[in-house]
Design a protein around this nucleic acid. Structure first.
Lengths: 194, 194
DNA sequence: CAATTTTCTTAACCTACATCAAGTGCCGCC
DNA sequence: GGCGGCACTTGATGTAGGTTAAGAAAATTG
């Protein structure tokens, strides 16, 4: 079944009856995104939370000198959205792009809010999801303030073990917050050291 | 009434009946924290969310070279906790310290969970609170990756206008992620420029 | 599989910020 | 009301990581 992955994902925090599962899945909108295509771009209003069932997305911003900063990767079994825009319904600052051909299930903000009312367990689920994102985001902030690039790379490896040798180096460099040139140097340094 | 501030704070997102207000306030535990005393220290398990009614707290971590990194300030009308520890109930990494004599209302994790069940509106409230923290934390991460120290100082001023000339410079320096020495130099540079 | 684009590497030089050190002002406290 | 300590300043020097540039390797595309 195409909904197995997402239902299992929910099951980590809440238990749904069969009818509830059906209400939920009826709200979902499958979508395919080809490599290098965008689910969302800078200046749009984010109207969906996306759950990745196959492939991989990246969310990033572009600063005023044109440098990209990867905020998160979303491989299969992860949720992604521009939370700022989704919450405020103002124009967002994130781009969400497919790093390879990717399948997602979209849950519109409107449907998400209906779920909160119809099945309060979803309020619980998304609260926990948001809490976990908050902790991750805070930890990454601490890391960026206190760790060296090498240690941040190490943390990246722990967080996204499946992506390490699956992703162009420049994406990893952007995630840990260094230039591709420096990242390349750093990697060869790390090899030399051991 | 001592609960006015917190009830108003809730009212920004949810509306409570008089009975619900009473159930809620009965769960709160007032506490006074003297300047330089701690609400929570590194290695403890965080058991409370704290709402500040007067004074000001700061949450910070200490990295392995002994440098402090301020994660957030909590003046009156703000919530604060070590979210990582509160959620996971594992030993935390944050210190929460009073920058001046401070009054807080404590809501224990246990009571918070009772509220979620008794009055589901609280699940809604804390979901929104967490969402807003997430957005702020993400924005700060973006800032730390893409802005210069001067721009981050500018953002600090927008976020905490009441604190600017109320706080030792070294606290601000720590928040924006530079040494007190560099911050001092930067400030005099900024004055010279205009 | 050739052509083209994208990614990766290496090297020389540069900059924002850190570190160390020494000195000044100031506030709280016995 | 003097003094001990903390916050702040200023200067000299150090360093992680950035920038620019150019070529090599790899991956996409026709």
């Amino acid at each position: 079944m195409p909904f197995d992955l997402i239902l299992n994902n929910l099951e980590k925090h809440i238990h749904l009856t069969r009818e509830e599962q059906e209400i939920f899945t009826a709200y979902l909108q499958p979508k395919k995104i080809k490599r290098k295509q965008f689910l969302l771009t800078y200046g749009e209003i984010c109207k969906y939370s996306a759950f990745v069932t196959a492939g991989c997305l990246r969310g990033y911003t572009v600063d005023k000198s044109g440098i990209e900063h990867v905020l998160n990767f979303a491989p299969a079994d992860w949720w992604i959205a521009d939370m700022y825009s989704l919450i405020s319904q103002k124009t967002g600052i994130q781009n969400i792009e497919a790093l390879e051909d990717t399948d997602v299930l979209l849950l519109s903000k409107a449907n998400q809010e209906k779920l909160y009312i119809q099945i309060p367990k979803f309020e619980h689920f998304f609260r926990i999801l948001t809490e976990n994102s908050l902790v991750a985001s805070q930890q990454r902030l601490i890391d960026s303030l206190s760790l060296t690039a090498e240690d941040r790379y190490y943390n990246f490896c722990k967080r996204y073990p499946t992506l390490i040798d699956h992703l162009p180096q420049k994406q990893i460099a952007s995630y840990i917050g260094v230039t591709p040139e420096f990242f390349s140097r750093m990697k060869s340094e790390m090899v030399r050291k051991r």
